[in-house]
Amino acid sequence: MPVPLSYVKERRNMPFLKRGMRVQVDGLMGVVTAGNRSGNINVRFDGKKHSENVHPWWRTKYFDKDGILIKEYGD
């Protein structure tokens, strides 16, 4: 169930996290759409209609509005 991103930002100490920001998860590009109760994020991958539950630190890169990498997490 979606929750405000503020929940994930606080729980995971990710002050940069914003709805609509571009992310790359394990090589797949998408957009952050919401947070969820597990402390994860919902991402709608390019070409998909629905968002998926993604751990925010698993092979994830976060980009600012200009496409510049601002944070990267490995395995």
Rank of each mutant, 00 (worst) to 15 (best):
Leu28Gln: 14
Lys48Leu: 12
Val43Thr: 06
Phe63Met: 05
Arg44Asp: 06
Thr60Phe: 09
Lys9His: 03
Val3Lys: 03
Val54Ala: 06
Phe16Val: 06
Ser38Arg: 13
Gly74Thr: 13
Val23Tyr: 03
Leu17Asn: 00
Arg44Asn: 00
Met21Ala: 07
Asn42Leu: 11
Asn42Ser: 06
Pro15Val: 04
Asn40Leu: 07
Met21Ile: 04
Glu52Gln: 14
Lys61Met: 10
Arg59His: 15
Leu69Val: 02
Pro15Asn: 07
Asp46Asn: 12
Gly20Glu: 06
Arg59Phe: 11
Pro56Asp: 05
Gln24Phe: 04
Asp75Asn: 14
Lys61Tyr: 06
Gly35Trp: 04
Glu52Leu: 13
Gly74Cys: 12
Lys49Ala: 12
Val54Ser: 04
Gly67Phe: 10
Asp66Leu: 09
Gly20Val: 05
Arg44Pro: 02
Val31Arg: 14
Val43Gln: 09
Arg12Tyr: 00
Leu5Gln: 00
His55Leu: 09
Ser6Ile: 08
Met1Glu: 09
Met21Asp: 02
Gly74Gln: 13
Gly74Asp: 14
Gln24Gly: 06
Arg22Trp: 03
Val8Gln: 02
Gly20Phe: 00
Ser6Arg: 13
Tyr62Thr: 02
Gly35Tyr: 05
Arg12Trp: 02
Gly35Phe: 02
Leu28Val: 13
Lys61Ala: 11
Gly27Gln: 08
Gly39Asp: 00
Met21Val: 03
Lys61Asp: 15
Ile41Gly: 00
Met21Ser: 05
Pro4Tyr: 07
Ser38Phe: 10
His55Ile: 05
Pro15Trp: 03
Asp75Tyr: 12
Leu28Tyr: 12
Leu28His: 11
Pro2Asp: 14
Tyr73Ala: 11
Arg11Phe: 12
Pro2Cys: 07
Tyr73Pro: 01
Leu5Asp: 00
Phe63Val: 01
Arg19Val: 13
Asn13Ala: 07
Asp64Tyr: 03
Leu5Cys: 02
Arg22Ser: 11
Arg59Trp: 13
Ser51Asp: 11
Val32Arg: 00
Glu10Asp: 07
Thr33Ala: 04
Val3Cys: 01
Ile41Asp: 04
Asp26Leu: 09
Val25Trp: 10
Tyr7Trp: 13
Gly35Asn: 00
Asn36Glu: 08
Phe16Gly: 05
Asn40Gln: 12
Asn53Trp: 08
Val31Gly: 05
Lys49Arg: 14
Asp66Asn: 15
Val43Leu: 11
Gly20Lys: 01
Gly67Ser: 08
Val31Thr: 14
Met1Cys: 08
Lys18Met: 09
Lys49His: 03
Val23Arg: 05
Tyr73Asn: 09
Val23His: 07
Val23Gln: 02
Arg59Ile: 10
Phe45Gly: 05
Tyr62Trp: 10
Pro15Gly: 07
Asp46Ile: 04
Asp66Gln: 15
Lys48Gly: 03
Arg19Trp: 00
Lys48Ser: 15
Glu52Val: 09
Arg11Gln: 11
Met29Asp: 11
Tyr7Asn: 03
Lys71His: 13
Arg11Gly: 03
Ile41Leu: 02
Asn36Thr: 01
Pro15Asp: 08
Lys48Met: 14
Phe45Trp: 05
Lys61Cys: 10
Pro15Gln: 06
Pro56Tyr: 04
His55Cys: 11
Arg19Ser: 14
Met14Leu: 15
Lys49Leu: 12
Val32Ile: 15
Met29Thr: 13
Lys18Pro: 04
Lys9Asp: 03
Leu69Ala: 08
Trp57Gly: 11
Asn13Pro: 08
Lys48Ile: 00
Thr60Asn: 08
Glu52His: 10
Pro4Phe: 09
Gly20Trp: 04
Leu5Thr: 04
Ser51Phe: 10
Gly39Thr: 11
